[in-house]
Nucleic acid binder design. Structure first.
Lengths: 224, 224
DNA sequence: TGACAAACGATTGTCGACAATCTACATCAA
DNA sequence: TTGATGTAGATTGTCGACAATCGTTTGTCA
């Protein structure tokens, strides 16, 4: 039986493709999305395209104006701040839960990633560091053994990815990041629940404040 | 110009209707949903129905098996626990933010609701108490001035509504609830940020532990 | 009788077409 | 020139039909 598990409808394929393009910034915030164009580029009819757009809409990637179509969601400074505020709480919760669970092997895995990242940071490979950093935190998230929490954090990360990519390239960020990871690994080793959660929370929050010092609204690509 | 702002597509109407039915427990967890049946009952074609189902799917209300249709999402004990764990953090965050904001008039509003609830509790009107309780907390959520947070909390509440309805009828719950509200109001008045957040968090968590003492998997309505 | 295979019915996934509505442009009057 | 108004084109919302696939029933053979 060849019976490959191809359980994916066109709608789901299109959804993933568009999601990736939005995350990567290929589709820019505020940019309008026309159904017919997608049909042509994917070579399909409008049904799967519309379903994909409904999914993107439900997850906040696109915004819809009735009878006027959808466009890639713009994020204001305020909203980015809001998301980071929530993310800080959820991230600290994830670290807390992961440490509490104390599954063996995790620290080893984190340390291995940590070593790699130090090497990568030395040759200043920002993209690779970014990727490994994501993996480092993903590992922790998953160790929290709370699937809903993992989903939430992933969704937040996706929605802010295009902004973080820029911000995280700020000078000195990698060094700071490495220090944070060292602290996290130490917490895992000592099992210091309280301290881990508290410190992690305030670390992220201070990040936010550095990134968004004022309350100006974000300027975005204006429509064509 | 009659031009009523009726900017709602059939898909959106159907989505809301189904969402309500799932929340209310009219559509039971695990129950299969057949597209054609919905078409007949709503008197529409399959396009808007399918879009509504995609929306419900993205928000976790229904589950989809490729080529086999959708069914109302079942929640296991573990998942309910997970959600409450997250909710506890987010709820405490909302209280924290609301108090920090310290907008005048809020306490008055909360007190008014509180008074009403005491009266309602005395004549043991569980349904009305439930409704007011929801409003009480909604008020606080909104005061957090973090729209994303409000959305998250609302979504969580919706997804666990059918379970909470049962649990919250447990004897003595209303009395306990009233005491909690008094504490919250006191925090608002004194502006005691740290204490408010901490206590609120642990209050909710202890609730969870009372509700889910063991780790048994929830039994659900089996398919017809 | 029991196990396996083939055909059927039910249901999902996709398509192209039509209707409703909006936007942009052109036309006309002041 | 400027503003309103109407028309045409573009785009979304909805529909009914066909194709693909799954589960079940029926039929066949040992």
């Amino acid at each position: 039986m060849k019976k490959i598990i191809n359980h994916k409808s066109l709608a789901e394929h299109i959804f993933q493709d568009l999601e990736n393009k939005i995350i990567a910034g290929i589709l820019k915030p505020g940019q309008r999305i026309v159904e017919e164009e997608l049909c042509r580029s994917f070579g399909v009819s409008r049904s799967p395209v519309r379903e994909a757009l409904r999914m993107l809409e439900s997850q906040g990637f696109v915004h819809r104006e009735p009878r006027r179509g959808v466009s890639v969601t713009k994020i204001t400074m305020k909203e980015a701040e809001d998301i980071y505020t929530i993310r800080a709480r959820l991230d600290s919760l994830a670290v807390y839960l992961a440490i509490k669970r104390n599954k063996p092997g995790v620290v080893t895995k984190l340390k291995k990633l940590h070593e790699k990242m130090i090497a990568v940071a030395e040759r200043n490979d920002v993209n690779e560091y970014f990727r490994l950093n994501q993996k480092f935190h993903d590992t922790i998230f998953r160790e929290s053994d709370n699937r809903k929490l993992v989903n939430l954090l992933e969704t937040f990360d996706k929605q802010t990815m295009r902004y973080r990519r820029m911000v995280l390239r700020a000078p000195g960020w990698m060094k700071e990041s490495i220090q944070n990871h060292e602290a996290i690994i130490r917490w895992f080793e000592t099992g210091d629940l309280e301290n881990a959660e508290k410190t992690r929370k305030s670390t992220i929050l201070s990040h936010v404040q550095q990134r968004f010092p004022n309350n100006t609204t974000e300027e975005e690509t204006d429509e064509n």
